[in-house]
Design a protein around this nucleic acid. Sequence first.
DNA 1: ACCTGAACACCGTTCAAGT
DNA 2: ACCTGAACACCGTTCAAGT
Lengths: 211, 211
Amino acid sequence: VTQLDRKTEILDAALALADERGLEAVTMRALAQRLGVTAMALYPHVGGKDGLLDGLVDRMLAELLPAAQAEGDAAKRLFAIGHAARALARRHPSAYALLLSRPSVTPDAVRVVDAMYSALLELGVPDAEVPRVERLLSTFALGYATSEVNGRFSMGTLNPRGQRAQFGPDEVPAHRRLAEVLEEAPDWDAEYAADLEDLLLLIQQRWSRSS
Amino acid sequence: VTQLDRKTEILDAALALADERGLEAVTMRALAQRLGVTAMALYPHVGGKDGLLDGLVDRMLAELLPAAQAEGDAAKRLFAIGHAARALARRHPSAYALLLSRPSVTPDAVRVVDAMYSALLELGVPDAEVPRVERLLSTFALGYATSEVNGRFSMGTLNPRGQRAQFGPDEVPAHRRLAEVLEEAPDWDAEYAADLEDLLLLIQQRWSRSS
DNA sequence: ACCTGAACACCGTTCAAGT
DNA sequence: ACCTGAACACCGTTCAAGT
C-alpha cells in the first residue's frame, strides 16, 4: 500500500508546486527535485505528465468531497457544494482549470455528483431532468471559479472609462447607459452567492414541490 | 497596414493548426514551418508564445461578434449568442479553453458584451444587476461548451453500469435510483437549448416586465 | 523593416544499468 | 521493486548578422 501513499505524496507535492509557482512550473524535473529524487523515478508512480495532471484532478475532487457530504436540507447542501467548489479554486488557482478540461471518473467524483443528484431529487426535480440540471449547476460553478481566478471578470470592470474611450459615441450604447454601475467594483462573494440563489430559485419555481 | 494583415495571417494559421492537430501542436517552430518561414520571424508580429495565445482568443471573439449583432427581440438575440458560443467551440475545440483562462479586452469582446447588456436591459433586468447576469450567462455558455468539447460530460453517462459496479450497495443511492435515466445517451443540442431556455425563464420571472 | 542561423537553457520520455 | 544517468528529440527565446 506504500505504492498508493507514494503516489499521493507525489500528487500533493505537485499541487503545492502548482499553488506556489503556477501550473507551468510543474515539471517532471522540478517536481522530482522537490521530492529529492530523479525525474524518471516518478514515472512508475504517476505514469508520465498526463497521468500526473489527471492525478491532480482526482486530488482536487477528493478535496471537494467532504463539502458534498455536509448536513442540512437539499438547498443548503447544494449551496455548500457550490461554495466549496469556489473555495477550492482559491486554494488551487493554477491547477483549477484542469477540472474543466480533463474528464475524471474517480470514485470521489461520482460521489460528489451523487450528492448533487440526491439534493436535486429532494427538491422535486423529475428523474429525467436531474442529470441535465446537475450539469448546468456544476458547469456554472466550475466556470465561474475558473473565470474568477484567471481574471476573466476583472476587465470589463477594471477601468471602464478608458475602455469606453476606444469607441465612438453610441457604438457601445449599453456600456454608456450602465456607466455608473460599471464604475463600482463588484463584491465577488456576494455576486456568486446571488447567482447560486437565482439558480436554486429557478429550480424551485420550475419544478415546485409536488412530492 | 500589411503589419496587421500579416498578424491575422499568422493567427489564422495558428488557429487552423490547433483545429487540425490540437493546441499542443501549436509550436512556434511548427507554425513558422506552416507559413514557410523561420520561428523567430514570428516574434515581431505576435510577440512570443503568450502573445500568440492572446491573439487566438481575440480571433475567436471576433468570430463570435456577427452572431451578437443579429436581429430579433432580446430573448432571440441572447439565444443566438449562446448558440454561436457553442458553435465556436465545435469549430475550435482545442483552442476554445483559452477563452476561460485568458482575459481579453479586445474591442470585439466589448461589443459582444455590449450586445448582451442591451438584450438584458430590454428584458427588464435592472441596471445594477445587468453585469452580474451577463457574467452568469457567459460563464455558463463558455463552461458548457468547454466541458462538452473536452469530454467532461461523457463519462457519468458513457457506461453507467460499469461505473456503479465500483460501489457497494447504496453508496451512491441517487445513481441507483436514476439508473434507467442514466442509460440514455443525452442529446446535447437539446440539453443546451433547454438550459438556455431555463436561464431565460429565470430572468423573465425574476424581473418580470416593468418597463 | 523584415528575416535568418546558431546557440542557450530548458522540456518529456526511452532505455540500459545499477542495487 | 525501485531508482539513476546518459541520451534523444523536442521546446521558447536571445542575439548577432544579413538584406
